[in-house]
Design a protein around this nucleic acid. Sequence first.
RNA 1: GCGCCCGUAGCUCAGUUGGAUAGAGCGUCGGACUUCGAAUCCGUAGGUCGCAGGUUCGAGUCCUGCCGGGCGCGCCA
Length: 676
Amino acid sequence: MILPVHDRLRGHLTGVLRELYALDETSVPSIALEYPPNRTLGDLGTPVAFELARRLRKAPRAIAQEIAGAFGTLEGITQVGAAPNGYLNFFLERRPFLIDRIAGRYPTAPAPAGKAIVEHTAINPNKAAHVGHLRNSALGDTLVRVLRFRGIPVEVQNYIDDTGVQVADVIVGFRVIEQKTLEQIQEIADSTRFDYYCWDLYSRVTQWYDGDKDRLKHRADTLHEIEHGGTEAAAIGAFVADRIVRTHLRTMARMNVDYDLLTWEGDILRLKFWAQAFDVLKASGAVYLQTEGRLAGCWVMPIQEDEEATPKTQLPTPKEKTEKSEEAEEPEEEREKVIVRSNGVVTYVGKDIAYQFWKLGLLGRDFCYRVFTTRPHGPLWATCASDGENDHPDFGGAAYVYNVIDVRQSYLQKLLKQALVAAAHPEAADRSHHFSYEMVTLSHATARELGYTPSEDDAKRPFVEVSGRKGLGVKADDLLDTVIRKAGSEVASRNPELSGEERDRIAQMIGIAAVRYFLIKFSRGKMIVFDLDEALSFEGESGPYIQYAVVRANNIFQKLKQRDGTDEATLRAALNDVPAGELAGDNGSHELWELVLEASRLDEVVDQVIRSLEFSVLAKYAFSLAQAFNAFYHRSPILNEERDDVRRWRAAAVIYLRDQLTRALDLMGVSVPPRM
RNA sequence: GCGCCCGUAGCUCAGUUGGAUAGAGCGUCGGACUUCGAAUCCGUAGGUCGCAGGUUCGAGUCCUGCCGGGCGCGCCA
């Protein structure tokens, strides 16, 4: 890990600058650390001299030289140099750097205090999951892993919307179209892939509505029944949602995605969370009763159009001021969002506000909790409205909240933050993050493979929109089945001696690696036009490529042990006495050291990932590390290297690199197969 | 109409603290399996970073305007 080195260097350098130029705390420039383009220039570098050049009215190069001269000594740094262009560069002491890291001896940065809640997945429990949902959970689960890596305690929630129109529509499908009783539906659930069955039924219901708009009355009636409970329709809804959620959990488990708590929307309603939140909002004046105009009788929240959460730092320019006052003089109908309808029924946003308040510990009310299912590593909890277990973990009340929801929900997520600000919790608003990402759509080729004939609108665009209502989309399990099957045949052809069971286990690891990497490698603001062939690729920039690098590295040590009994522990042990010329670059190449330095950057990458919430950075880092290793692997033998010292240092570097790469894969939810 | 996002090589995309020569995969063309596994490696070709201004010692990255594309903006959820 490299960050402790950064911190130490930054601290020392700040002290040097203050002394050298008599700067006070506020005027010391922040010190950016970078990696020079090659190791002959240095291992770390900073352009801080450029920053100071104007203030000191000196050439950057002269400043860099002065700093280098005044640098003194710092543990772990062997040399400081001023480059002709003004960069200040540092060389690290290589031997202890690697030895310490192999041994896991380095200080770790303290984690920020407080728990984080990550909510992701949130698939409507009325049909099978599709690729779009996989992007959500792959991003969400990676976020969870990355935060935990950083030392932050994380609670993972999956929100279940069991009271919405989507579930109601499937109920209508069963009862009105198929004329089924609850008992018959239970039989269907036990004898079919129930999520697939509902997938088809749901799209049939949509078509059926299209045939006669009066049929929508069934939906309205059903929604009403779900909300009030006690009827056959409500019982069917509860059964369907429960069963479908279980299928989703199975699908996500294949992806190595897991949760701590399932939050059921129905419980938020039954426990009157909204009433509580409503009181808070009314008391703070965040919502008010509109008495005139078209929204008369509704409780509304004013929408701030553009004033972002940082009004204090952005002073309006004179021009903006006049524009604003003009607006104020001409009251062009202020925008308002209805929170409670004139019939007294709360809108979707209202429920979300209450839920968000609870997540942040601002509601003053809690759920009851039940065990939804048991797993090897402990129970999976779910909310309930009454008769909960007494002994349950603490849920809710987090310092940070991340809502993983696609970009189309941005408007509503923005309203959530506004509600928090309006209710006098601006700090909670700052700690609420909408982790947004773009949609997954289908390539024309893949849509065609699914038997879809494009409409005129579709034909104009380079992609086809996934639609649950139309039943158009690549089902998650179909994708996983296909990719794992393909991996299985590859494994079988390369390792004919493997048992079927072992082969399947490995195929699953490889298939999941391919899918998860594919979903992570794009930046989240980019639409993924899903193409089956592309996602099925195991070559080039892919998850299996990275796995392959680690498997190869492991093979080296396996062979080493087989051949002369050297195990990793003994390799690590004696390094202090071995000449380190290979690591120092005595052969004219810094390739080995380059691998070590790059491998050490995982913690820095994780920090950047958390700051930017951009996982493509992690994906690319792992890939380029694997790439560097593969190139090294071809050029520099270990098993057949005659020179003892060279062999040992190469092995040591590969141990470290392999460990770091394994960690990086784990952060992406990918495990390393024993063979492939 | 307003708001948010996207525009980088033939294709798909990295480049998110502004820094040293703009990178990768796929595809092209040509090489490397008697040596730790070729799901690999090496080489080759390919770029007005949408356009125009601006800020800066320095801009793919920040600001403004424009062009092209996507999404969002309901007493739906």
